[in-house]
């Protein structure tokens, strides 16, 4: 058979070698390098030169200095908040797009959802900075109602990140709903379920793997973010800022690597939990 001939295998190998090399060296290798670096230290003068002395000081600092725990928990809370908000926003939007809108409107809605992805991250974050500013439209709209703009801070950070990552939640949900036959919704109603019950018993469970896929995006993107919080987060910082400050500002790459290991560990735990629900098999 052609499929098992030596020529075919050679061609297959040459075809797959570059991407596998990329995966092995650039991707996993970088991760390994990062992890190794976190066990080294830098010289005293802050020039960022790494001294390859094996030690656990970076991790000791992470666990003993309470501020890092505070920042980790804050980052985690923001990531959970963003994910939950995105899931709650994306469900009705995706439901409308996939099941209610006419095919023509659907096309435009997909473009509408994708459009913000074409704009630069910074433009969008600065747009929210303008919106939420003391003299911005949000304050102008809410003040007559006795409310006020949340100002720059954690709320603004969650809003901005939820906005930034929303398409990453809508698109998998929309794809999941597209695959969900209308007849399932009819069948549920036919068997006596009101729309809410249909949503809870049929739509959400069928959509669960898609929502999990979306949450992996929103959750991990938020965990690693450090720019939005700089722009709209006021005086707050997230794990990404600690990584940035230590690698960029202080030139302490080993400590930055140790901090960067936190979101990696959180994601591994998250994926393990997701795996247990069985959602990954249905992706």
């Amino acid at each position: 058979m052609a499929a098992s001939s030596p020529g075919y295998r050679k061609r297959l190998a040459s075809l797959l070698a570059p991407p596998m090399l990329w995966l092995g060296v650039a991707y996993l290798g970088a991760l390994a390098a990062l992890f190794l670096t976190s066990f080294w230290t830098v010289n005293a003068f802050g020039t960022g030169e790494i001294e390859q002395v094996w030690n656990l000081d970076n991790y000791r600092a992470l666990f003993t200095i309470s501020v890092y725990r505070t920042i980790t928990l804050r980052t985690l809370a923001i990531a959970i908040g963003v994910t939950v908000i995105d899931a709650l926003l994306a469900l009705p939007i995706a439901l409308y797009m996939a099941k209610v809108a006419s095919p023509r409107a659907r096309k435009w809605l997909v473009i509408g959802v994708l459009m913000p992805l074409w704009a630069s991250y910074l433009v969008k974050a600065y747009a929210w900075r303008g919106l939420l500013s003391d003299a911005g439209p949000v304050a102008w709209l809410l003040r007559p109602l006795g409310l006020d703009t949340p100002g720059y801070g954690l709320t603004a950070t969650v809003i901005t990140l939820a906005y930034l990552w929303l398409p990453y939640m809508i698109l998998p949900m929309y794809a999941g709903l597209e695959r969900l036959p209308d007849s399932l919704l009819d069948a549920s109603a036919d068997l006596g379920a009101r729309p809410w019950l249909t949503l809870r018993r049929v739509v959400v469970p069928v959509l669960w793997p898609a929502a999990v896929a979306g949450s992996i995006f929103t959750f991990s993107l938020t965990l690693g973010d450090y720019i939005a919080v700089k722009i709209v987060g006021g005086a707050n910082q997230m794990l990404g800022n600690v990584v940035y400050d230590n690698s960029g500002v202080a030139g302490n790459l080993p400590f930055a690597a140790a901090v960067a290991a936190i979101p990696v560990v959180i994601m591994v735990v998250y994926l393990a939990l997701v795996r247990r629900t069985g959602a990954l098999e249905n992706l």
Partner: peptide, 20 residues
């Protein structure tokens, strides 16, 4: 009246069994 409020049941062309 909505579908959930009628004393009829349907067998669908694609069966519409809940996959989960």
């Amino acid at each position: 009246r909505p579908a959930y409020d009628r004393d009829v049941n349907t067998v669908f062309q694609d069966y519409a069994l809940f996959p989960h």
